[in-house]
Design a protein around this nucleic acid. Structure first.
Lengths: 204, 204, 204, 204
DNA sequence: TATGAATGAGTTTTCATTCAT
DNA sequence: TATGAATGAAAACTCATTCAT
């Protein structure tokens, strides 16, 4: 899930701290004003540093954005994978996956908002989306793994794994997006509702 | 779902034609180079007209974008509503909704790509997303209407209608997004898979 | 001698006038502060226009610079070629060439200073010089033509034409460069001295 | 020809070594990417040191550039002067001068490329060229010395010494510039050709 | 001495918008 | 109505230089 990062040259403590500070500032700016207005100037101002510092620590805006994605993504994956340990049924994995992602969302709203901004907006040099269905392969395969396991144990019926993975993934994203603009929305209830949907839809 | 349009002052035939020409050009540019590179200059060049014309016929870039959304959205709604006529079971409506949207996608790929670009990128003056969960109310209510009907007839079990509507809507969007970057993907099979999914998820 | 120019799309009178104004301003700025400080901002300010105007009329700084080269070069070539008409001996051509270039220098000091700046400084995207020995081929061949004619008529002895062309060309450039920083220098006498030099160097 | 250097305060061995290392790195960078891209960062990276070191050892980029010029120029002069010893005719001196410079060029291509970059690009604070005809006085006088000697011995006819010196100097520079971009060019033949030109042009 | 970090001015370029014709 | 021209703000990025450690 590591979308290409810096060649792991050794970084000093200060360097790491600055990069972390810049990443944190960028996340906050992205979440509050959106990608298009998250200029390096805005990020620097929010962090209380000069524009040049960002250029000094990151090769360019793209590297900064990709670093943010990597960091946020890694954290989600870590949490979900940790929760998944100990589950031995496909249904259990399925519910745990959804509930633990929702839990993570509740605690990292700003990060996920920023992640969404980057996912929807970052483009490569030719104007093609940097992220999107084509970079979700690893994610889809992870989800498919759970459903395939369920099919192999007989818990689940036969269905197209990719369709299920896409639906699963998008349902979670939509849950977050809705909650993000409707803070009163009951995120946990939503997650339980989703878990029911997928459990029933997959069941024999 | 009419996201605010021009005050309905009478428009001349020429005016309408020009606006339609500009909208068509904008859709093609958005679909091919993405929102960020879809400058008025690019749209004008693609249409073979001067930049000034766009400013003359639209209050600004935002109005143009909103006009595009209105037009595309209206067409989808018309087609889906037409197909829905004659269905008298919730399951029938559900399946028809999904299959007819997929059919529309197959025939209007460019328009939907453009729609997605605008949805993900357009911001208001303060930087808040112009579209998103908060502008989908009408859409959600339409979907909820079907599921509520199913619950009232006893076809469907009891579940949270809003959660279902959000999931239903996102599943369709994700189907399109995946197909858009994976043209070999079997859109109709995907749609049938989704129909099965929601039928089972909602069933008693 | 036309080092690549705009595709000859039709230009309006105003467009031509603006481009000419910008070119003239750029020449003056180049001549007075040198290439490195001849920023678009400086050129615009000198012309009393906004920076954007330059971007509007030229694809980029490089196109502006190449347009300048083209214009200046074309004028010199026209004058020299006109003077060369009517000469029927190699010695006559040789002397006329040198004297008419010197005459042009006297009347177009600023332009030639600007030309020198661009020749010495303009680089392509990879950092290689845009002009230099490798783009002088046409110039060298023109000069060689005269000397070859002299060898064929028996006016001149046998020598390497390319070496002569390089020397001839550089001697003229150096005459200008010296005069440019030493305005009291007698340009015409220098030109006559050069003419004597090459006549004797080539003579049997 | 010593274009102003550091006040001759005593330098430690280490200091000298560092300066030499920096100068060597700068020459290579200048020759390979050109003046405009020869940033202190690039020079430091090429040398494997930090940017700060350069600032520490040189008052600024300009002093570094001038130091490079001094070093390269000094070496050429030493070689030419050494070769000139033992020549007792003006013609001999003339030919030796040209041939020994060409010989030096063959062995020090990188240095001379760097020298050319600096000559053409370095500017003082007001934007005026740091080098050029106005700083060549010492060079011109050295060359004039030879030709004046030839005139006094009767080997050479009467001509303007300055014109001859300028031409002589530029012919050598042009020989190098041509060879630099046309490595197959026969440098020695070119030098002999030049020597013939100057011998004949100066002869009675 | 040497370093990495930071600065801020300066670069080119893009763009939505305005306006006179 | 339509156009080409002009604007000026904002963008990302580069760079020589300074400075605390």
């Amino acid at each position: 899930m590591r979308p290409e990062s810096k060649p792991d040259r050794q970084m000093s403590f200060i360097e790491e701290a600055r990069r972390a500070q810049i990443v944190a500032s960028a996340i906050e700016v992205l979440a509050s004003v959106g990608f298009a207005k998250a200029s390096l100037a805005a990020i620097a101002k929010h962090a209380g540093i000069s524009k040049g510092v960002i250029s000094y620590h990151f090769a360019g805006k793209d590297e900064l954005m990709e670093e943010i994605v990597t960091q946020i993504y890694t954290k989600i994956a870590e949490q979900v994978i940790a929760r998944l340990e100990g589950q031995d049924t496909a249904v259990g994995m399925l519910r745990t996956y959804i509930l633990s992602v929702a839990e993570h969302m509740r605690d990292h709203r700003t990060q996920l908002l920023a992640l969404g901004e980057i996912f929807h907006n970052l483009r490569d040099a030719e104007g093609k989306p940097r992220y999107g269905a084509h970079t979700n392969e690893e994610l889809y395969q992870g989800i498919e793994h759970i459903y395939r396991f369920g099919q192999s144990t007989g818990e689940f019926r036969d269905f197209d794994l990719r369709v299920m993975a896409i639906t699963h993934s998008s349902a979670i994203d939509a849950m977050f997006a809705y909650w993000a603009v409707t803070p009163d929305h009951d995120l946990d209830a939503h997650a339980r509702g989703l878990a029911d949907f997928f459990e029933r839809a997959a069941a024999k």
